[in-house]
Design a protein around this nucleic acid. Structure first.
Lengths: 194, 194
DNA sequence: CGTCTATTTGAATGTACTCAAAAGCGGTGG
DNA sequence: CCACCGCTTTTGAGTACATTCAAATAGACG
């Protein structure tokens, strides 16, 4: 199991002894899934938080009209999950599936509670992680209210240049909250300008 | 200083000894502000998290075109602040001001760090609080992408019936991400249906 | 190579915005 | 107590940004 990536991620925020490291690692499970496979389906209970070692996942929900909306992408070094479902053990509103063949480490709810008890510093780690996620989400909401689709797309390209190549346009459009047709038109317009 | 409200709020999530309670309370400052006064202005550093005892605050940002967008309302028993600015001590992107005469308790950054050290359970309290905020923010973003303004307004009324009366329409419109003119038209349409 | 999915193109439509002006409402001072 | 001022809400016409639906084209994968 590759553990360097996740330990490094954690040690950016908190310091760990060797003992704590190995205890933490002992709580993790490893899983490899193929493209299009699900890690979580809406209405199931989300039993794990997932840390991506390689590949790419997305979380999305399906609205009343049956349309999919991407909430998050997760590539190497990112966490993903349905936080509400995970913490309250209620049915998920999100689906999580693989856009590429993907390897993840899984941290279950009992495991995380043990972790909080035995290594309280993790309480801090997860607080900071969620704090950052909250701030990012707030900014994303602000952008969706005050910027046009064109600006949101340009910001997205600037912020995640690697995603532009890696992800199908239809997924990017969904993340940005626009139709794939409109994103295509935007790209044509932007290409013309250059 | 009224302390029952905030202690009650905290003890919903973590247990505290009498000693811990009084230590926590000793870290708080009290402030009363009039309608239209600022607690925070964009580009200043956010030095406190604010807990509302009475009255009503709003946080908002101003976009490139000079338009205001309400990010959050905070009435009795709610926290408000600019989390990014507070934790990184960088210039705020949010303004916070009072929509009514308002009393708050203030928790500073040094205070909160002391608190984490001496009463680690607070790490948990703030983790859970932020977790809930994150989940709420995610759902709000999802709604803004998949529902029309009309549905968002109806949901808002259902979720926060007290706000409907208490807040000026122009503030509600801003929170919902629509113009006051359009909200007015919506209301007229909905009233006609009844 | 053929099939299935993703992207592009275009026309018609809809949701929400802008701008301007009128009407309503609340507070304040005479 | 009323009159006036400023701010909020309403109304309406014209417009813009983005969607829907349909069909053609391009790409990817077995």
């Amino acid at each position: 199991m590759q553990t360097a990536l996740i330990l490094q991620n954690i040690q950016k925020l908190i310091a760990l002894t060797e003992e704590e490291k190995s205890f933490f690692l002992s709580l993790l499970k490893y899983k490899k899934i193929k493209k299009r496979q699900y890690l979580l389906q809406a209405d199931d209970i989300c039993r794990y938080e997932y840390f991506v070692l390689s590949g790419c996942l997305r979380s999305y929900y399906v609205d009343e009209k049956g349309q999919e909306h991407v909430v998050q992408f997760a590539v190497e070094d990112w966490w993903i999950g349905d936080m509400r479902s995970f913490f309250t053990q209620t049915p998920a509103w999100l689906n999580i599936d693989a856009l590429e063949e993907t390897e993840v480490l899984m941290l279950g709810k009992e495991a995380i509670n043990e972790l909080y008890q035995k290594v309280p510093a993790f309480e801090r780690y997860f607080r900071i992680r969620i704090q950052n996620a909250f701030v990012a989400e707030q900014q994303r909401l602000a952008q969706s209210y005050s910027k046009t689709a064109e600006k949101r797309y340009l910001d997205f390209r600037e912020r995640y240049p690697q995603f532009e190549q890696r992800l199908p346009q239809v997924q990017i459009a969904s993340y940005l909250g626009i139709t794939p047709e409109f994103l295509s038109a935007l790209r044509a317009k932007l290409a013309g300008k250059r």
